[in-house]
Design a protein around this nucleic acid. Sequence first.
RNA 1: UCCGUGGUAGCUCAAUGGUAGAGCAUCCGACUGUUAAUCGGCAGGUUGCUGGUUCGAGUCCAGCCCGCGGAGCCA
Length: 476
Amino acid sequence: MLTSPFALACPTRRAMHSGRAIEDPIMGSVPVNELKQHIGKQVQLKGWLYNRRGSGKLLFLQFRDGTGIVQCVLGKADVPEPVFETAKRIGNESSIVITGTVKEDTRSTLGVEVLASDLAVIQEVHDYPIQITQDVPNIDKLLDQRHLWVRSRTPHAILRVRSEVVQAIRDFYYNKGFVLFDAPMFTPASCEGTSTLFEVPYFESTAYLSQSGQLYGEAGAMAFGKVVVFGPTFRAEKSKTRRHLTEFWMVEPECAFLELDGVMDLAEEQVRYVVARALDRCKEDLKVLERNTALLEQVTKPFPRVSYDDTQQLLQKLKAEYSTSSDPELQKLGKDILKGGLGDDLGAADETAIGLHYKQCVMIHRYPRHVKAFYMKKDPQNAERALCVDVIAPEGVGEIIGGSQREDSLEELLSQIEKHQIPMDSINWFVDLRRYGSVPHGGFGMGVERCVQWITGCQHVRETIPFPRTIYRLNP
RNA sequence: UCCGUGGUAGCUCAAUGGUAGAGCAUCCGACUGUUAAUCGGCAGGUUGCUGGUUCGAGUCCAGCCCGCGGAGCCA
């Protein structure tokens, strides 16, 4: 390790050989989240003024550098007069360099604070548009300032969790030997034949932004065995709910020789891995978000696997139960259960009720074929059912995963394509996969934002992506 | 697309049809241990737009614009 060329990149190692704590090799300063390793040392901090409290002779600067927030204390007697005057004057988000000594302090949540000896201003700011306030935030107004809002504590914590979730997903599939198989964003036509697509001029013709990489993933599975498609997808539906974005990220594993039970095993294992990793590595962020992790910790238990037909029974029971509840919210939920009637697709209320009942992730399998996509395999036990599964997350989050065993019979697939009126010339390449060495296979898609929404407890998925795109928001 | 709901100070919100208000932020001042600091003070407004009713409209009526929540669709 010591001879590794990467050793130079480790700030703590260099710090040990010098009286002056050295710097993060990238930002040229000591990151706030590593200050604890430098107690008693002099450090230089580069970043921004997050907030300030204090008195005429003692200032408390809340300093942030992207890795954390630390309190820097400036005593009027301890620094040159102009430095103190500057510290007193500059506004929030002024960019600054602070020099000082790291001190252990139990009053700080970080465990340390910095006794400042000097302060240099890179840019002085006086009119930062976002204020730190006890008011209940108006998310929409803050989203207008999203480019600045991402500096604030809450969005910062959520986006850190997102980063960890994405890395966990990549690690999970990489460690299992999956090949990353990128699907195109420009596609010739609808992959599933139902959703509304964004049209884009494409030279002399029209392209559509991909709403799923899955069909391409199937080509990959026949080439590599296990592949995973991971990228943004686009839906032009005019959905205005807290679960919808027009641009979102989806991870879509696809495996040859994987049948429905295997799809469920993989989905369960992946969700468990991702949630456990966020719980393990994002403790501080989840604390900032005041997330009660009790239900999240249930992911270690097996996910109940319930057939669609059994959910119909359950929902009838829950409808009767909730409708007579004294809680008005439950009563309303009860009213909305099975709104489409028996035998229809599950609605948002149905999913909420199921999540409420099981208080953990539930896998619902074998939906009616007519509510599902054309490429799903017909259940050999029941021609009216598809070999598919949705994973429903609890706490009102709803569907985070949709998957299935794919139709591997050429004849069945062709008849489905005809039934769904999908233009043959844009899908013929996909049918080739059933002409040349078709095998049983399957996979699923997980919405990254919905997963992050569940883990962080966000009210709305738009807070789980740096720059959300919704029907009425294209800026910033 | 449908249903619901909202638009007042930079932000969060008040205001029986009768002088446009508060808290926070900004700015000025006080304070040597603050933890979304506290205290005092100054300033801050075309009440989304257009029209109507009225002696008088933030408030009532009509139309429009722009959001938000939900449904459907989905991840």
